[in-house]
Design a protein around this nucleic acid. Structure first.
Lengths: 216, 216, 216, 216
DNA sequence: CATGAATGAGGCTTCATTCAT
DNA sequence: TATGAATGAAGCCTCATTCAT
């Protein structure tokens, strides 16, 4: 075993499958986000999770299936949290501001999610395409979004020609790209985009950018 | 021996170093864009370029240096082309429309560039950080952009509070994210984003999105 | 978890040790015959037998001991059945014809036995050497065979110089090799040796081959 | 590298591909004959051949392809040697005696060939079925055999009803089974079949067994 | 008796890189 | 400059076996 001995070897005598699976998933998410599918090391995931390497195979089959499980869980977590915003109860403009803000903040605080998606796209979404759950999550999202836009249009606060999906992509893009490409952006512009203040400024910019488009 | 035989073996009897290097770079760009740094195979690059594997090492040192060379060349190519737009000669609003359209089209037609950037960001821009050329390219870009925005503001067609870098990021994000994350987006929304018509619609949306923000 | 789901999981709620052991032995015989000692999987045996893997260890100690048990049982079964031919009650020529026919048929119908022996010989009979039962079985066989040959010689129907063991080996060989090496033979001769008609023809051939040698 | 250090590490700086391939094939033949496909260790083959393990993959692709190459080479070697007997130049009875003797001796001296075939049959001839060369070798053999039998029948020294393939199988079986199953036979009969004298006796027995059948 | 969870050892293979010509 | 041959390191995965209930 070539396991890095810097971290002392733990033994998983928990006999608590649910918890064991969770520990694996968490460790895997970190490793995959950090290194990508190809760069990630199964050994490293085992080490991080404090679980015997073979348990990964016992529970998840192989590296790619584990990766798929991580991705799916990540999508579910995001959309669950989003659902809890209860946007349908807010007035349209407020709902949009909350949604845009939430999206930005979520990506800011879950860089691993961003990194995972980046990597999955390098693999042409090969893994997530196997998931039906994920598709379901987004059809609901789409419906909700359409309703808000419609209500806004009817109330005269939103422009009338907004395609919900295009809009959703744009709104997400403004935050996503900032975080996903932060490293290259920081370098090419010689400006650090990782700080607290910068991020706050970006948030304002995004909110303003989106509102400018939406408002009638 | 175990080389993938799908790509038929070429022999490089050119004895033309410049051309040989170029063939390597082109093959490498395709391979890296396709598979990422970790997924790319030196053997595959050699095969694609029709050049003996050892020559890659002779000319570029190792895989990562080759990757860096590919990245740098990609940035240079984009900014060169951008420079040739001569935005400074156009009136502000027109200049912006040209720039936004150009950016969108460039990303659309150079998916490999998008893929490379995605991958490089997974590696925290480790490679491009070594490049000083790239930094230089963008400081010029920044200056030019500021001037246009200023002119536009003075002429009263643009709002006055636009941060050039934030704006540049936003403008790019709207196209970039659409292409970089096309695979996952297509799946989660059950909608194909790769077609010609879809792309044209997106282009319009982006132009409108940006103008809405800019205009006074 | 990664168990082959083609075979549906059974649960062993029998609480009937004897029956459980038998189920294991049967499943093990199939698996070992199919894949050989090295190719066989303990998991597969457990699955096939519908018995928890741990029970294999409980009853048989380890994989090799289980293999040994299978082999021994196979030999016993053959010789038991052979004994029931009561060759000593037949006249010599008839006895031989019955024996040769029986041997051929038994091998034909018990390919697993043939496969097991093949595999055991690859392991230099390491396992069966531990069995004293098997040795005993064959000393009786040898005695019986000698008597028949002697009686035949005295009656003038058999040649007088027949070594019982050599003869036994030859008689067995003619059927055994046909079955044990059927796959390679079929290929190299471009002829299918697995069909009913082919087998019947072979049986005739073997009977004739042996008689030609025996008769005075 | 977990290579067995009992044998000191050799370096293959020969740069003689033909020889290197041969060394690998020879070592592989020994290991596969010794342990079977599943029991054989790629590491052991590398060690035995004094060649870097990865060269096996460079030249042969993977373990199974190497196994296939070994099998094919073994068949070719046998049939080549057989051809050199020039049986067609001998009179029928002599030809058969030479053939039977040769076959017996070849198997006696090439136990590895016997072991390989045994193992290949456990795998249902999966590997050799890929070889067209082998098939070709045996169609020629069949023709030659038919001619001898025909000539013998015409000359009145052989019986007329001999099926060449059945006969070939029988003739081979008498020696093959003796060697392939020597270990179990030795044990069950409590008699050592590996000695020089025993083998000579067996050879005589086989020759007599076959002649008895053939002669008119 | 019976079972799901857990583990250590080791096997096959890949791959970037270097050697020798 | 160009090339086929060779190598060390490491990665993914399998499997017999044992633990704990």
């Amino acid at each position: 075993m070539s396991q890095n001995k810097k971290i002392s070897k733990k033994v998983n005598s928990s006999r608590d499958p649910k918890n064991t699976k969770l520990k694996i998933l968490n460790a895997a998410r970190r490793e995959f986000a950090d290194k990508g599918l190809n760069g990630a090391r199964v050994d490293a995931i085992a080490l991080r999770s404090g679980v015997n390497k073979q348990l990964l195979y016992y529970y998840f089959g192989d590296k790619e299936k584990l990766y798929t499980a991580v991705l799916e869980a990540a999508y579910i977590k995001l959309r669950e949290k989003e659902k809890r915003l209860h946007l349908e109860k807010l007035d349209p403009m407020q709902a949009m501001e909350v949604l845009v803000g939430f999206t930005f903040d979520y990506l800011a605080e879950n860089r691993q999610f961003v990194a995972l998606l980046n990597d999955e796209n390098i693999h042409r979404a090969r893994h997530i395409k196997k998931s039906k759950v994920v598709r379901g999550l987004h059809s609901k999202l789409q419906v909700m979004l359409s309703q808000i836009l419609q209500r806004g249009a009817q109330e005269g606060v939103f422009r009338r020609d907004v395609d919900p999906v295009e809009f959703f992509i744009s709104m997400t893009a403004l935050g996503y790209f900032y975080f996903s490409n932060g490293h290259t952006l920081s370098h090419i512009f010689g400006r650090n985009f990782t700080g607290r203040a910068e991020r706050e400024a970006r948030r304002e910019h995004v909110l303003e950018f989106v509102s400018a488009y939406l408002r009638n």
